[in-house]
């Protein structure tokens, strides 16, 4: 079964809504609490990144008995140095923003850490597609 979400960056109060809705779906499907927690954290990071950096995009969640695949696609600026973005602590946030608690540089590393598989396709000026996979088989 597939679940599609639009991430609309022009409506800030909607940020995080896709993650919350999908989490509710997972609970209704009886996915284990631990897996739900990992998915929620990773998907939320991705969704917020789309709002902050890419002016929104689409999220497609594919659920079957063994695996959950989440594809987050945007037509944003792309990630200039992927290796750097994957490093813990690296962030594009300004020092002021960091003082406010934003941009701890854990977004990408956390997504990798909490998912079982992660793929990133990115092209400058074209956009980024991030795929997260979570295994359900116990």
């Amino acid at each position: 079964m597939t679940f599609n979400y639009e991430v609309d960056a022009s409506v800030p109060e909607m940020a995080g809504r896709a993650s919350t809705e999908f989490k509710s779906v997972l609970k209704q499907l009886g996915v284990s609490a631990k897996v739900i927690r990992r998915i929620s954290i990773a998907m939320y990071e991705g969704e917020i990144n789309m709002v902050i950096h890419a002016n929104g995009g689409t999220i497609t969640c594919q659920v079957d008995e063994n695996q959950i695949e989440i594809v987050m696609a945007d037509v944003g600026p792309g990630i200039p140095d992927l290796d750097l973005a994957m490093k813990a602590g690296w962030s594009t946030a300004s020092p002021q923003a960091r003082e406010l608690g934003f941009g701890a540089g854990m977004g990408m590393p956390n997504m990798k850490k909490f998912s079982d598989e992660m793929e990133v396709e990115t092209q400058i000026g074209v956009g980024t597609t991030l795929t997260l996979r979570f295994n359900l088989a116990a």
Binding site: K27, Q28, G30, V31, E65, L136
Partner: peptide, 8 residues
Amino acid sequence: LHLSSDMQ
């Protein structure tokens, strides 16, 4: 919250 204990 789950609709059924069987995911399918």
